[in-house]
Design a binder for these strands. Structure first.
Lengths: 275, 275
DNA sequence: CTCTGTGAAAAGCTTCACAGCG
DNA sequence: CGCTGTGAAGCTTTTCACAGAG
């Protein structure tokens, strides 16, 4: 799962029993709705009128029991003995996800990744409209990307207000992310998609989701390692616990690892870590 | 969570009790290790010698009980009354994730996103080395991106073998993704990071993780909608269930939605959906 | 006295399996 | 008869809360 929600809907430590979940759809289900929607859209384009849970599940890459359970949270939209009406389900899921309305977004940080996102077809095709591209670099301002002019950060607040932007995408270097986030929030943005490898601090009521390219690779590396390394548990013989006498050794070994990785030991997490 | 594993380590329908999990670290924990690693790296760079679970948890954006539980799966690496030795923990987590070895990766599809990834600092700084950039377009072959030459797809098999590549990154348009995936797998790749909005079919033993930019936005939209729409449950009055007499209405409404989204009704999921 | 490590409880999610609708 | 919708079981993950190391 790209990754998780950040503001964890605080369970009110005071004891108040949290706003009763009306029609509460589980997070795990919400995360899969876009998947179903994509599969359904493809079927719709091929003019397939109905689909069974089994078929749709295969197309979406999940199992059918899960899919049926997921849909049961939305309501009873299927027909027993037949399946689901594709068009109808597309509409219901779109509505549930809020895609039947227009969502203007701003993209802040027009480097490689910002460019890529500005050109991303999947945004426009799902109700997301890029209201503006913003960058702090005055040299970029005036250039265009994906047909839109890049505008200077100075204009951020005004754009957010005049365009009623409630979703912001951060594709800046990590050092600038929190500051950009603060400005977005102050200007009224309440949902943030963060591509910078930083943990953002936001006030209650603001949602942050993050996409971290290197995290996904690291998870793959973990499993990959397990595949080739089906040998012995590899008890490491050199590095011992700090405090038990050989702290210096441990530290040295750790540092050697960092060096090998190319991690600078003095600057903030690799200069161009913007993606 | 960006997203989930795809090959679900098949529970052997035959009944065999699945290879016993030796030192099994929960998936949820594995997914958080990179987060901890990043926070620890930052501390290490500021020469902080030790850190408490509370502090580290805050830096990583999780709660401290979870963090302690996570670390307990790796072993007892802390010191009661004190905290964790930063360098030592960096080393242990790196080792657990397999980042103490070199992981050559290939990136296939050098469009906007492929470019962005080629330039991404977070790869190199975590042990991932871009072994090659590949694209099917002969016009691109010969150009360079991030200092590396773009090579033609024809060379894929040879590069994977000679460089011992086991991880592939797919940043092609969706139509090409499965085909590229098949070639990668045939050539020996066993882990794939997929940015194309497609469900990839892979044989047992191959791991796929996907990053889908528009899915994350859709999840944000869902929550965003809930914020402004704290009103009544919005029982939709126009669209009724298909089969109960008004199917045509439903379909029309659904189609209207698709149109509004800009989804083409004939081609395969928006031509340039490459990101 | 502080802060880790961990059993045990709680919550959340997935899978099973089948009643029953069309 | 086929396929949905769903209780109930099983599993995973999170949270609690505290024993006990340093």
């Amino acid at each position: 799962m790209a990754t998780g929600r950040t503001t964890p809907a605080s369970p009110s430590p005071g004891g108040a029993p949290r706003r009763t979940r009306v029609r509460g759809i589980p997070d795990a289900t919400v995360a899969r709705l876009p998947l179903y929607l994509r599969a359904l859209t493809a079927l719709s384009e091929r003019s397939v009128p109905t689909v069974s849970s089994e078929e749709l599940a295969a197309a979406a890459g999940v199992n059918s029991a899960k899919l049926r359970k997921d849909f049961s949270y939305l309501g009873s939209y299927g027909t027993r003995g037949v399946g689901y009406d594709v068009e109808y389900l597309v509409y219901q899921i779109s509505r549930e996800l809020g895609l039947t309305q227009d969502w203007p977004v701003v993209i802040v940080g027009i480097g490689n990744l910002g460019h890529a996102l500005a050109n991303y077809g999947g945004f426009a095709s799902r109700g997301f409209r890029v209201a503006a591209l913003l960058d702090a670099d005055p040299a970029l301002a005036g250039q265009t990307a994906a047909g839109l002019p890049v505008r200077h950060m100075d204009e951020l607040e005004e754009i957010i207000r005049s365009e009623h932007v409630s979703i912001g995408v951060i594709t800046t270097p990590p050092g600038a992310a929190q500051q950009v986030c603060d400005r977005l929030v102050a200007a009224g943005v309440t949902s943030i998609l963060n591509f910078a490898p930083t943990v953002l601090q936001v006030p209650e009521g603001v949602d942050v989701r993050k996409v971290d390219l290197s995290i996904e690779l690291q998870i793959l590396a973990f499993h990959e390692q397990r595949k080739s390394g089906e040998e012995q548990p590899q008890e490491d013989p050199v590095v011992s616990r700090p405090g038990s006498g050989a702290k210096a050794v441990a530290a040295a070994a750790a540092r050697a690892v960092s060096r090998a990785r190319g991690t600078s030991t003095s600057t903030t997490l690799g200069s161009e870590a913007e993606a």
